[in-house]
Design a protein around this nucleic acid. Structure first.
Length: 543
RNA sequence: UGGGCUGUAGCCAAGCGGUAAGGCACCAGACUUUGACUCUGGCAUGCGCAAGUUCGAAUCUUGCCAGCCCAGCCA
């Protein structure tokens, strides 16, 4: 642990803590509230928690921060565990804050005995009204100076269920004039006659985050409690709890905050997710347009690409807005190495080869990835009726277009150079098909087409559906619940009838549709006979 | 306007008193039967601004400016 070079400010702090406090083992925790699905923002926190501990040869606990029974459920616990495992992280212990309710209760009793906590009869509105403002101090509660005995009795009665929701709270007695509002006698316990998904009806009082969190950390022996910047103002309270609860033994945990992830054009709020799922704008929490891990997974992103992204964006305290192309670069880099190459014509037009025997079929070799050593190749059948990509042909080409044009030449990948002899249109004036001829002696004639395009034999290809997903919200729009229906991008999913070579149907993992992008079968909706492929990410396009 | 925090390239981000790492993006070129990949080169005389300390400042001091967070019995 002596020779570890810190690579961000958190690791620097840990290095100095090791020196100053003589820490032997670094312990972190990932503490999600089980009330929603893991999203890419969580992934950043997960990576920081797990990778930091790992770097110092310590470990990380997974702790469900289940202190608000009205919103939480086992369903989310399982989803969270699944996502963390998928990312490839292993927690040492799995805990629930609710495991500590008894301990937390004892700490509250101890605070009362020290005269550092009191039962307050003020309503939520009254507490709010007496809290003061950003610039004015608050007013002390009239119940602030109850006797220790009375507080003890009342708090026991709270636990015993003698009071209705909202009628009483337990508050820490700190300082109503404190410039930090979190220190103005914060509520640390509230009454909620709600069934807890693990504790059942055992409790009707529940500790607040600010009380439960430091105690849970301390109880587990967490040395570094890493969280996002919005909790900076809570750190004095975190430390107050740690310093004043005498039941805490051992090394005191230290809270360090980092900037949470913001991705340009991506809304990362639970409220938004719930809204678009409930209103049916997306196909559930795993819709490929969702920035949830389930969504990314379905879209074909790998755990490695997500982790690599988290590595690349770094850890700091500055408010940042990360460009989504960083993530795209991560997944492209990985898929370029690993994805099997397959030929697919995403948006086809028909091509007839007029000088090729209609009864003939020959094998053509296509290499998997010419730039990677030992890359396997496979064969495709060539016949006189083909599909090519609609965008690989232009009647009136733009200046630097070097694929197929009328009377122009192009190379069919792995096969022949062809010439476009005739554009045949239907009654509506749309292109029906192209009549082309193979130029068998292209080399001899000195014809060297600049472009190489992919193709598929109409006879030896399978019809499928391909889907490309874009941003759910229109370009430049900022999410607002009230105008959601107006800012939804109607083209956030574009489906096309496409053709793939038959071998593609067997491919369950990521593929590159050569020259088009990386695709994966949609495991949720694709069926035998009706295959659906989702574009993970396009190829970098400098056309 | 109280408190807390942050400002280094288009976007992230190192740097911790010795003369601006790296990644993504972008530009130019080479290679290419994927306009991809790969390779080569380019991309901050300047670190929010202004003074000061110093032989020397992105780093220290002071003063400004800008942005973010906080007034749940949510986490």
């Amino acid at each position: 642990m002596e020779n570890i070079t810190p690579s961000n400010f958190i690791e620097q702090e840990i290095v100095s803590d090791i020196k100053e406090k003589g820490l032997k083992t670094i312990v972190t925790r990932f503490p999600p509230e089980p009330n929603g699905y893991t999203h890419i923002g969580h992934a950043k926190a997960i990576c920081i928690d797990f990778m930091t501990a790992k770097k110092f040869k310590g470990y990380t606990n997974l702790r469900m921060d289940d202190t608000n029974p009205s919103k939480e459920s086992m369903h989310y616990v399982k989803a969270l565990m699944n996502d963390i495992k998928w990312l490839g992280f292993k927690w040492k212990h799995m805990y629930y804050a609710s495991d500590y309710y008894e301990f937390i209760y004892d700490c509250a009793i101890d605070l009362i005995k020290q005269g550092k906590a009191f039962v307050c009869d003020l309503s939520a509105d009254e507490i709010s009204a007496t809290r003061g403002t950003l610039t004015e101090p608050g007013k002390e509660s009239p119940y602030r100076n109850r006797s220790i005995e009375e507080n003890l009795k009342l708090f026991e009665d709270m636990r015993a269920g003698k009071f209705a929701d909202g009628t009483r709270t337990l508050r820490a007695k700190i300082d109503m004039a404190h410039p930090n509002i979190n220190m103005r006698d914060p509520v640390i316990y509230r009454i909620q006659h709600v069934r807890h998904f693990r504790q059942g009806d055992k409790w009707c009082i529940y500790p607040m985050y600010d009380f439960a969190h430091p105690l849970s950390d301390a109880h587990e022996g967490i040395t570094h409690s890493l969280c996002s910047l919005e909790f900076e103002d809570h750190r004095p309270l975190y430390n107050w709890v740690i310093d004043n609860c005498r039941l805490i033994k051992g090394v005191k945990p230290r809270q360090i905050e980092f900037a949470r992830l913001n991705i340009d054009g991506t809304v990362l709020s639970k409220r938004y997710f719930i809204s678009i799922v409930n209103k049916g704008y997306v196909d559930g929490w795993d819709d490929p347009r969702m920035p949830t891990l389930a969504g990314f997974r379905r879209k074909g992103y790998t755990a490695n690409s997500i982790k690599e992204f988290c590595k690349r964006i770094g850890v700091s305290k500055s408010n940042s807005l990360v460009q989504p192309h960083i993530l795209e670069a991560c997944i492209r880099e990985e898929l370029n190495q690993n994805a099997t190459r397959v030929v697919a014509v995403v948006d086809p037009i028909k091509v007839n080869i007029t000088n090729y025997d209609s009864a003939k079929a020959e094998k053509i070799k296509i290499s998997n990835n010419p730039t990677v050593k030992n890359s396997k190749s496979h064969t495709m059948m060539f016949t006189n009726e083909l599909y090519i990509e609609r965008e690989d042909f232009m009647i009136e080409p733009t200046p630097k277009f070097f694929r197929l044009v009328p009377n122009g030449y192009v190379r069919l990948m792995g096969a022949y150079v062809i010439k476009c002899d005739e554009v045949v249109k239907d009654e509506n004036g749309n292109i029906d098909h192209l009549n082309c001829s193979i130029v068998y002696d292209a080399k001899e004639q000195g014809i060297k087409p600049k472009g190489t395009i992919h193709w598929l034999s109409r006879k030896y290809s399978e019809r499928v559906r391909t889907r490309k997903y874009g941003n759910l919200l229109k370009e430049g729009e900022v999410y607002e619940e009230e105008i959601l229906d107006k800012i939804i991008n109607p083209e956030s999913m574009i489906e096309k009838v496409s053709y793939v070579e038959p071998s593609a149907l067997k491919q369950k993992s990521n593929m590159q549709f050569v020259r088009m992008g990386y695709y994966i079968e949609d495991k949720k909706l694709s069926k035998k006979g009706d295959r659906i492929y989702i574009e993970t990410v396009s190829l970098k396009d400098s056309k």
